[in-house]
Write a protein that binds this DNA or RNA. Structure first.
Lengths: 137, 137
DNA sequence: CTGCATGCAAAAACTTTGCACCGCC
DNA sequence: GGCGGTGCAAAGTTTTTGCATGCAG
């Protein structure tokens, strides 16, 4: 078990209170208000540790830096092609695709990672993407 | 339409003949046999271009560098937790999960990206992972 | 006190880009 | 010949790490 640290606790709380899946940089900038001397290295170290402990989830979107999610309950993510925002989806019960994937396969399928893409509610209504695509601070 | 180049053609052919989803670095090292002066920048430029043209696919596995797939037909990928290899799966007909994901969601779900995880046939048989996890050259 | 976590900075890992020259059209 | 592609190298972006110091147990 790792030793307690105020920094790690603050990172955990910060992520638990946010629903926009911030990047390490965003966590760092916000944590500096409470810890003016916190370093980006510490943020990365703790994000990695919390991910390994299963207390947060890391999202690798394939474009730009990784994002982090304080919500570890089983759920899926939606990435908007318009503005780049990352949203939680309520969908569940997709585990059957592991069975489908395991058919005609000699190995063992233990799980899957899925990202859904499309237009978020905001971009759907506004038809045009907002000014700053993929910048979510 | 981009102008023909021997380098790009060689990259396309190299990927079409491989089924192990090589990284840019691997493409580079292999191409240097035919083009001793080819640069990593050229490899990256062409991999990006071919991806945009839809002639190859880019795989962002979330760990390590991106990989590239010369097979653009619709299929899914399996990533081995043991040795890190990336395999093609024959499974199809997973599009219904877009419908499921779109329920109770105000936006528009246009597609999804899924990676399956588990033990590849080799790691299943050998029980223990091979010596060099995640190094596929 | 002892050792793990931090802060700081350097470095690593991966990818993109500016520029002069070369080769396709 | 003109312009797009290449080679080379430098720089950009994201993440990791070495080391001295500080705080938790």
């Amino acid at each position: 078990m790792p030793k307690y640290s105020r920094q790690r606790e603050a990172i955990r709380e910060f992520l638990a209170a946010r629903y926009d899946h911030p990047t390490a940089e965003t966590v760092y900038r916000n944590l500096r208000e409470e810890f003016p001397n916190i370093s980006l290295g510490t943020v990365y170290r703790n994000l990695t540790l919390l991910t390994e402990l299963g207390e947060i989830r890391k999202l690798s979107t394939g474009a730009g830096p990784d994002r982090f999610d304080g919500n570890t309950s089983p759920h899926y993510h939606f990435i908007c092609n318009g503005c780049g925002c990352v949203l939680d989806l309520g969908v569940g019960g997709l585990d059957h695709i592991n069975i489908l994937a395991g058919q005609n396969f000699e190995g063992v399928v233990e799980g899957h990672l899925t990202y859904f893409y499309g237009k978020c509610p905001s971009c759907t209504k506004n038809k045009k993407p907002i000014d700053k695509p993929f910048s979510v601070v």
